[in-house]
Design a protein around this nucleic acid. Structure first.
Ligand SMILES: [Mn+2]
Ligand SMILES: [Mn+2]
Ligand SMILES: [Zn+2]
Ligand SMILES: [Zn+2]
Lengths: 140, 140
DNA sequence: GCCTTTATTGAAAATGATTTTCAATTACAG
DNA sequence: CTGTAATTGAAAATCATTTTCAATAAAGGC
């Protein structure tokens, strides 16, 4: 259960440990797909029925600041959140069920230097996402 | 002046040619950076002071459907629009001034097959954006 | 040019997501 | 256990976008 580690990190930055935060953390930490604030709200409310949507927004903001979750941009929903990986990674998303997988080890240096030369830009960072169908969704 | 070509395309799909559309087209066609609907509104209003923001939204939607402009997602603004290139291309954005450059000729096939094998996903499409500083912004 | 038809327009209202305000509650240091 | 300051949820405010609607004007036929 990684949940305790997330809660410990929250606590170490001066946050108090509440039922509302625990519920949101449990939902985010155990989800393998990006969730919108309302989806987090619906899931977390089952653990803490008093929970308000406002608190979900506030907790997501805190978790993002701590680098425990990341914002996921998609053509439709740009406000969904997913647990973050460690270090530089990229996302692979299932177009059907939304499942998300992180991967690393891209080698784009050659591309960067070519584009840098052609355009005169100094390239600082990049953003790569792959879309497809996960194993389960391929057979349905 | 490519503006006329955009207007002709609009007309060929049954649209009427109005001052409002002409203003929005001129702004989008001549901008080298992504603009939000309000930015388009402010710029286009100088050509057609009567212009309403609603019409900007409606015209941007039409231009996007025709493939003349594309939506640009960034960490902050996910609702900005930029003229589209031809065929499969990627974006390079200046982090300072917002200038946008399209480029093509990425070779990511090796990466796709490796990630596909490791994850079991069938990879269908991808999304790549580079960020950096344009030549002008490097020297300031 | 002058009608007629019908798409287009902008103002205002409606919607939906997010943020702010605020008084009541509660975690937790002492 | 107590005092205090952080946290909470409800309600109100804000902001971007969409819908509604009556007035306007583009384009085609004359
Ligand atoms: Mn990378
Ligand atoms: Mn590509
Ligand atoms: Zn799937
Ligand atoms: Zn620049």
């Amino acid at each position: 259960m990684n949940t305790e580690s997330w809660l410990a990190q929250l606590q170490s930055t001066g946050c108090r440990l509440t039922g509302a935060r625990r519920a949101v953390v449990e939902v985010m930490e155990s989800s393998d797909r990006a969730l919108t604030p309302v989806e987090v709200f619906d899931a977390a409310r089952q653990r803490d029925p008093r929970l308000g949507l406002v608190t979900v927004y506030r907790t997501l903001e805190k978790l993002e600041q701590l680098g425990l979750i990341q914002r996921v941009h998609q053509s439709r929903d740009c406000q969904a959140f997913l647990k973050a990986g460690i270090g530089h990674q990229h996302l692979l998303l299932c177009e059907r069920c939304g499942r998300a997988v992180l991967f690393d080890g891209d080698d784009l240096e050659a591309l960067f230097s070519r584009v840098g030369e052609q355009t005169g830009f100094a390239i600082k960072s990049h953003w790569l996402q792959l879309y497809g169908l996960c194993r389960e969704c391929q057979t349905k």
